[in-house]
Design a protein around this nucleic acid. Structure first.
Lengths: 189, 189, 189, 189
DNA sequence: GATGAATGAGTATTCATTCAT
DNA sequence: TATGAATGAATACTCATTCAT
């Protein structure tokens, strides 16, 4: 099956896109990384852009699926939010390269593909917003602007790819606790 | 004076970099935008990369200066944080193109310049962290991990360039209030 | 085999470099000469400079190898010098374009490559000097300054690319005889 | 008078042409060297090429004039040759930069100017040849091919710009003696 | 005399993609 | 499936020269 090679290519591409950026990565670079000739690569990929799209799409899809399964659970809004934050940060950090490519490089996609990613990101935002409105509805939360609040939470979580270092002292779980505490209780004593 | 033309060029570059991205913007595009021949542009700029650097550097500098003057004020930590958030969001939104270029395109800079920007961003992070530790010291705040908490706040604020739309219902001031409330009081009722 | 095309390119380059000079020859010129697109050329060459280097290096290498095999022979110093002059002039004239490029254009190389050529030319000079000192040692020659004398002989021989015309009345062999007679016997009756 | 500035420019150009080569020297480089703006330079020069032509022309002219005055003297052919060699080498070494530009860079001139230089060089060659035929006529020399022999002598002398180093142990006078001895007496004991 | 803005043609090199073998 | 030759458009940047002020 070619799926093996295809996967190998995608992995190599993610690593290169993360390191050098999508534009600065040449098809030659990817071919070198998997030990193929540039021409041979095109047996497995449609185009360099499509390769990026596959990576980004797969990434945002996993985020969405993960969050959907959390929303389906029968737990309090507070617990949903905590799990969302933990799951989001864990996935971001465990797949740091992919996440970096998703948030940093998807802008290099053409209009069409870019919009697909944007729509899925929006969907994700809606799910987070839903947790907040749920919490408001059942009296757990006080939120004046659920959508903007969701954007604040997401911004904080998504910014992680820019500063997280695997050699740092805090792991995904630690960071999740700090974030949850901040968003649930605030800074004020 | 050449400062006029130079400014015109920088403004055109910011606009183009924001719209198409740095890599996808050609020197020709910039020349066209200011009505000069490609070659003539080089009377005013050193290189395309340097142009980006000037833009990014100027942007992060303004953020830093603004925050420094807030820190110098004789007000509570809480008030400092509120002002920081308001100033940050206001500047981000009033100069949305520049801010977008700063956070999205600086990665395209070469190692040296990129590090300069990174160092200045770090400085900004330190200032925010300082507000938090100050608040902890005088009993205003409860913060377990000031640096990570600062990164959360900054992430939320910096993510704004990705979703803010000038035709939206909320302006910088509205968003600042939402953010401040979230970070100070948390979601829990 | 690509060696064919590569050779064709080198030959075309030599001809063009000789006619117009290295700087005045564009990559486009070379591409046109071999019937390729400018971009296609880069399958075969690393850079225009590298192409020049290959040509110059190959040329000086052949000079050196030729002289080394003469020095290895068990003949008198006088005969070595005569053979050296004959071999040098013959090679210069039979490969006049290459020799011209070697002596006239190698200066356009960057520091590193230029030094490589310089070192090999020096080696050649040393070999000629060796013939002279050998002749002095066994009483054949009288030479006060072997190195400067070698430089005089080499200068005379290398200057040939500047005046030799294939339609002239003298061939390489004739010129060799004249040179040998001059250097061995001098002008004085 | 502008002749001052004009001279300053020519001197700066010679130095730069010698160091970097004519093609690699920009008009900007020359302007910088004399503390003028690029545009201002054109009050003093016609074109970059003309500047090179002036330098080369002046140089070859001096060689010719010098040799002509030697030929006019009432001395033996042998002495004429010795003086020619001494004068040629002295001028070459005392004006090493100019001489280098003459022999190395004149090829970059356009067809017309290049031919002017070539014709003057030819004239020089003729004068040297004349010394030889004179020496043959009065029984001082034995020369089968005066023109080729003259080319050998000139080649040896002109090659000097390629190897002479001012920090070497031999000065122009020393080298002249070695050359004269070689050409007059030959190597053979 | 001096400036510096403007030109416009020119340069080497890169690169994603195609396709015959 | 794999190759590698070929494309052709694109790219940032340079430079000698002109000219209005």
């Amino acid at each position: 099956m070619s799926s093996n090679k295809q996967n190998e290519i995608a992995l190599a591409a993610v690593k290169l896109f993360e390191q050098k950026g999508y534009r600065a990565t040449s098809v030659q670079d990817i071919a070198d990384a998997v030990g193929l000739q540039k021409g041979s690569l095109y047996h497995y990929i449609t185009s360099k852009e499509d390769l990026l799209m596959q990576i980004a799409h797969q990434a945002i899809l996993q985020f969405n699926q993960q969050l959907q399964s959390i929303l389906a659970e029968d737990i309090s809004a507070r617990e949903k939010l905590e799990r969302m934050i933990r799951a989001h940060l864990t996935m971001s950090i465990e797949n740091l390269e992919t996440t970096t490519v998703l948030w940093r490089e998807a802008f290099s996609l053409g209009e069409g593909p870019q919009e697909v990613i944007a729509r899925m990101s929006d969907e994700y935002l809606n799910l987070v917003t839903q947790i907040l409105t749920e919490g408001v509805a059942n009296g757990e939360f006080q939120v004046a602007e659920p959508r903007v609040t969701a954007l604040a939470i997401l911004g904080a979580c998504n910014w992680v790819y820019r500063w997280y270092q695997s050699n740092g002292s805090l792991d995904a779980s630690d960071i999740s606790s700090v974030f949850s505490n901040l968003f649930l209780n605030g800074l004020l004593r």
